[in-house]
């Protein structure tokens, strides 16, 4: 049962009433709640993997295909700085929200027809983080452009 005002609740039904719960149950609910919050924040906000690297194509062109289904898979893409990049978006999600993908830093909007692959060429870019998102800004991904020299230096 469900009411708008507490006065109704109190007068009409025993919904708004206090029940004595055993201390152990209270402690259990509290600790489960805290654990759930911690896990949920870790799951959604924590870093999961360093991103997927784009594969090498012809003539130094880097290529990667991103599947659009409720989110971008992969959503964190690692590419080399100073090299051209081709992103191919394969959209299988019918929701209108993801019908566009926007790269604000490149001033680019790409319309993604349903069940098709659409490509976007991005010229060589300086190292940095370049986010992209759907038309409504709810589905998000990031292009992580790393400096080749810096990476090779750290490797050696």
């Amino acid at each position: 049962m469900n009411h708008l005002l507490a006065t109704d609740l109190i007068s009409a039904a025993p919904l708004w009433r206090t029940i004595d719960q055993p201390m152990a149950l209270k402690a259990l609910v509290a600790s489960l709640g805290v654990a759930l919050i911690a896990w949920e924040l870790w799951w959604f906000l924590g870093r999961h993997g360093g991103g997927v690297a784009a594969r090498e194509g012809e003539a130094g062109l880097q290529e990667i295909t991103i599947t659009v289904d409720g989110g971008y898979a992969p959503s964190r893409i690692k590419v080399m700085a100073g090299r051209p990049l081709r992103l191919s978006f394969h959209r299988i999600d019918p929701s209108g929200c993801v019908a566009q993908v926007i790269f604000p830093d490149f001033h680019k909007t790409l319309d993604l027809p349903l069940d098709a692959t659409t490509s976007l060429e991005i010229p060589p870019t300086a190292a940095g983080f370049y986010p992209f998102h759907c038309g409504m800004n709810m589905v998000r991904g990031v292009l992580e452009v790393v400096d080749q020299n810096a990476t090779s230096a750290s490797r050696s």
């Binding site: 924590g46 999961h48 289904d69 409720g70 989110g71 999600d93 929701s95 709810m138 589905v139 998000r140």
Partner: peptide, 14 residues
Amino acid sequence: TGAISAFRQHSADM
């Protein structure tokens, strides 16, 4: 379905 696929991508939305 949207919530589930977003969840798998470690993202959460509307």
